[in-house]
Design a protein around this nucleic acid. Structure first.
Lengths: 143, 143
DNA sequence: AAAATAAAAGACAAATTACTCTTTATTTAT
DNA sequence: ATAAATAAAGAGTAATTTGTCTTTTATTTT
């Protein structure tokens, strides 16, 4: 469904959002630890998200990654698109490049409905909306 | 969503089902051609499906792959499971090994619903149910 | 200004997935 | 019985994804 890169990315962003109360910043090491992800790998992913301005960071002592309230409004769909592109939302389920409404694969309508649901789900989920759930220990980000 | 291997596999199986009127058999070359797939690669995939008895074949002149009416009743879910395993149906959306009802990831319920839909869709689609659509040219298997 | 801290960048290594080629085994037709 | 046709099997190669390590750059504190 999602690439591993994207899974790590989402988990990291949720983690950062949670820790970003009052502009607190969180370093790569803590993120890797808190999400059970390989440190250098997740660093690369977050670099990319920062470049695309879905995530904020500062260097130097007391630096790290963070998400102000504006940035907590980005959707998970934004993150997924930034990492995996939009094939999940638009690609043919059977991998046919020319599959379209006019020239559909046999599963076109079926996959369309599913893709649509995934899209809605990810578009309506905001990066920052999981903070409480995580704070209360009702859900987890670490394997 | 599906691996490329699985996409090829499904397309091939649909193609074979369509061509299997009255026990006609179809060779690897025709399958590769008819589904726009790499010949030797699709051969491997079909080998595996045959070994698992989701597909039938005979060697020698006039041999090839085919699906009798009993075998046309297998579902696409059967094919997917044989090739990709069942991670699509059961895996955590964020890649967390220990994600479960009791210890859920933040997107657990959302992904559960989507996985459920995918499962129902693939379980209710029979390998042989696309023959007519394909015969009438209402859908295609080749990019 | 210097030292320390932290992300950015880049070059590499490993693992997995996708694909190719060659040989072997089986079946059918002559 | 032999030859031809065809899938099965196996041993590769190539590409992509995942993961690691090292160096550089920017920022802050002293």
């Amino acid at each position: 469904m999602l690439s591993k890169t994207c899974e790590y990315g989402i988990r990291a962003v949720m983690f950062i959002a949670q820790k970003s109360k009052e502009g607190e910043k969180v370093g790569i090491k803590a993120i890797a630890e808190g999400t059970g992800s390989p440190e250098h790998f997740i660093a690369k992913i977050l670099q990319e998200l920062t470049k695309r301005e879905l995530l904020q960071s500062t260097k130097g002592p007391n630096g790290g990654f963070y998400l102000d309230s504006e940035h907590q409004k980005y959707s998970l769909a934004d993150i997924v698109k930034a990492i995996d592109g939009d094939k999940l939302f638009t690609g043919c389920g059977l991998g046919l490049e020319n599959c379209s409404e006019k020239k559909p694969c046999p599963l076109h309508d079926e996959f369309k409905e599913i893709r649509e649901r995934i899209k809605i789900m990810l578009q309506s989920a905001r990066v920052g909306e999981f903070n409480e759930k995580l704070d209360l220990g009702l859900s987890f980000l670490k394997r």
